[in-house]
Design a protein around this nucleic acid. Sequence first.
DNA 1: ATGAAAGCGCTAACAA
DNA 2: TTGTTAGCGCTTTCAT
Lengths: 357, 357
Amino acid sequence: MAHRQDQQRRASIHDVASRAGVSAATVSKVMAGVTTVKPENAQRVLDAIEQLGYRVDPLASDMRRAKRRIIGAIMPEFESEFFGQMVTQLESLAEQRGYTLVAASSRESEARETEILARMHDWRVAGVVLAPVRNEHGPAADFMKANGMTGVLIDRVLSDDAFDTVSADSAAASAEVARELIGKGHRHILVVGLGEQAATVRARLDGFRTTALKLAPDVRIDVVLAETDVEPLRAQLRDYFDRVEGKGRGARPTAVYSLFLKGTLVALSEFRRRFWHCPNDISLVGFDDAEWMQVTWPAIAAVVQPVRQIAGHAMEALFARIEGGEGPPVARLEPCQVLMRESVGSPGNGPHPGNRQ
Amino acid sequence: MAHRQDQQRRASIHDVASRAGVSAATVSKVMAGVTTVKPENAQRVLDAIEQLGYRVDPLASDMRRAKRRIIGAIMPEFESEFFGQMVTQLESLAEQRGYTLVAASSRESEARETEILARMHDWRVAGVVLAPVRNEHGPAADFMKANGMTGVLIDRVLSDDAFDTVSADSAAASAEVARELIGKGHRHILVVGLGEQAATVRARLDGFRTTALKLAPDVRIDVVLAETDVEPLRAQLRDYFDRVEGKGRGARPTAVYSLFLKGTLVALSEFRRRFWHCPNDISLVGFDDAEWMQVTWPAIAAVVQPVRQIAGHAMEALFARIEGGEGPPVARLEPCQVLMRESVGSPGNGPHPGNRQ
DNA sequence: ATGAAAGCGCTAACAA
DNA sequence: TTGTTAGCGCTTTCAT
């Protein structure tokens, strides 16, 4: 017995036309809602469409119109809540405008990023939403520029001279984290980050440092910045803590601010290895929220990025350009929300007083 | 100053042809690696391609060949690690074969699922990898059948009479969880699930129950199954615990087995609300692993689904069908790994002995 | 070894 | 009001 034996050719516009006794052009007009078609014929066309289950082939249609209703989205990864939500949002916004979203992941590789972009260019996508691996000055943005592609840059970007950018207001959020930690009395804070994502991480670091120093000039801020990957960061963090512990009690920071999600995980796992508990032994705040952070004990404080706003404004900007909008690129920063949860306390409450209940 | 002023038309095959002084057909042949082209001409074509930066338009190409090198993937959501990894894998496997993956999320809605499928059919995708919202007997599978689409069903499926299926071996994994919990001495266990995903949840529940009862006929297994959504589950779980607590000490289960990820989160958050700590107050194992589970304190035991295997075999099966493979549908079950972490202990170790260190 | 012609499924001018 | 014509960019016979 044949698998998918009913694989008959789908009805084309000509099938509809001949069944309705009109030309293909007329069918096309009916589908486009052109009003100059004689009602009687329109009805015959509609009937034929219904009977044949006809639907336009969007690709063939785009082909002729020389404008494809496809938006490309390139994300560094699909595995995180942030980018997962981002893709979901973008998908839905593209659909609302009758476009299809084609998403691809660069897997944190700039080479792959450019490759994907080239493929999207081959597809002649109407526009691209690019969340660059590194920042707005990578090869991908250059490629887009060189090929006259329409696009918007999001997330790990600040501003660009060729493309609109939309990202979270990292600096403001970090300033708020600084206010919170300083306010609770922390005077020795470790900041953990990934240097590769230059622009954003720098904004977060500076935003934090500036405000912290303003509020408490005596604050000590240590920084552990891994260059490229997460595993080296784990090692560096371990070394760091070994070193400060070697200097005896009091040399250890009382709080950690992680500038990105994986850093938060690494910090937590390092705490675990040392049997430190939040917030008694050390406080923790992370940039980027995740569902699990509110159900662990203790719940982890986090900076929540406004995914919907970022997606919304990115698509708005993109479609404005697609529809011919001119003018200099605009750089948007969307405000974050800082959720201070139980992982943050005041220093000097003594080590691990055990579980309260 | 014009935005994207360099938006010149991209070079077409005809541009290459005229520059090389040959016909479009010849260019096409060169690109296809046909050997009958005079080397000299081939070289001229290659040069022209190089100079113009020519690349074929894959859509136009597919159009003519009447077979589009596009694979559709429909996932219930993008936000979870599991489906994120799945999409990443599928993307990479499709690429390896020169296909493009177009992923869409049904957002846990069967109506939307069918809608997306129809759109993919409009696109004339070569095949579809569908992770149904509910199970293999939904409207989406019917649609695929009715329209002679080629596809593979994954994840929330057991077997189907029309499509190949690939999923995790839920029953075997659950049996192993049962062995572990019974082995540790648990005799009163709560199982938490979502009834909607009928097939899979049933397999997990039965696999667990059967083995547990075999090993310890006196075991008491309570079940809290919400029908559709997570929030009702939260309420039901709260009620359940209120009820058993009302009956005094000893009426409370000593372990919880959650049949899906969100259930694990709900269980954890409920524990938190009651100031119960794992594993001293209660043990916890969840179906589905996540990165954070190994860094929390305690680390959460979990069933790890073999994402790569599922994706790999799904694509294998799909391409076999695309290439005309016949024969009855096959149902694959991929073995899971059960990671027993600190959230599981033995019952009766007394309540919250505080932090060891 | 090569190119002309036909056409995938559709739409946009233009004529009728 | 409608149909004819002419492609979009490509590939594939099929003559030459």
